[in-house]
């Protein structure tokens, strides 16, 4: 999309920035991934107020620092590859705003929960925190799904996708179709394993036992063979559309 008549030196700079942006995205997925996952896993393994509080305490010192990697990646994208930034941020306008809202809700859940000593207050903010964590994982997964499937890039280098159309991988794709939603669910499973590992590492007792106990079934959900199968079945369809 950007200059394809690049000189070798320019090409080196671009490659360098490509690697740098990729590293930032990876850092974000790995680091914020475990606290998103901790938010998801707290739905399943934490049974009492204290256990939920413990999970929040485990990610408390690091979660907002982890999210800075997303800001860094987006900022680097803006400076290094402005046409890509412009195309993707206008093409994915609504989902990106939804991601932003979910990140806000998640922050509210973490920060406001312990300000009032009341079971109703706690359970409300626990729900906000876990619910937004799940949806964030789905949206991030769907984003990966969109990149793999391809987007309807116009001749001007721009595109616009509605949040959903008919949920088919067809000529009028939406951000969410059956394929990207499946990848979103895969992301939920993968991040849950990731978060479960972190929670198991940071806690002990019943919570740790239950967290470890939940892992085998989750790992099975991320079985590379099945993921590969999913990709095989979708690739020809996506290629056929000639995006």
């Amino acid at each position: 999309m950007w200059s394809d008549s690049a000189q070798p030196q320019e090409c080196d700079t671009e490659t360098f920035w490509f690697i740098l942006v990729a590293l930032m995205v990876i850092a974000y997925v790995v680091l914020d991934g475990f606290d998103l996952g901790a938010g998801i896993i707290s739905l399943f393994v934490a049974r009492t107020h204290d256990e939920r509080h413990l999970i929040l305490r485990a990610i408390g010192p690091v979660w907002d620092g982890n999210e800075v990697w997303l800001v860094a990646a987006a900022g680097a994208l803006f400076f290094a590859f402005p046409p890509l930034y412009a195309a993707s941020f206008s093409g994915f306008y609504l989902p990106l705003m939804i991601v932003l809202w979910l990140l806000m809700l998640r922050g509210i859940g973490v920060e406001l929960r312990s300000h009032v000593d009341d079971p109703l207050w706690w359970s409300f903010f626990d729900f906000v925190f876990s619910f937004s964590s799940v949806l964030l994982a789905i949206f991030f997964g769907a984003a990966v799904g969109n990149v793999v499937r391809g987007v309807p890039l116009g001749a001007d280098g721009y595109f616009f996708e509605a949040l959903w159309t008919d949920f088919q991988v067809g000529p009028h794709p939406g951000i969410l179709d059956w394929y990207t939603v499946v990848i979103g669910l895969l992301a939920v499973a993968a991040l849950t394993v990731h978060g479960a590992n972190y929670v198991a590492l940071k806690t002990e007792g019943d919570l740790r036992a239950r967290t470890s106990g939940s892992q085998p079934s989750l790992v099975a959900a991320c079985d590379p063979d099945r993921v590969e199968l999913g990709r095989e079945s979708v690739y020809p369809a996506a290629r056929h559309q000639q995006f």
Binding site: S90, G91, Y93, M97, W101, Y158
Partner: peptide
């Protein structure tokens, strides 16, 4: 302004914020 994001979309997110 963005030629690909409609004014209605922008209004929606403004109300959301």
């Amino acid at each position: 302004f963005s030629s690909h994001v409609s004014a209605g979309n922008a209004l929606f997110t403004l109300i959301g914020f």
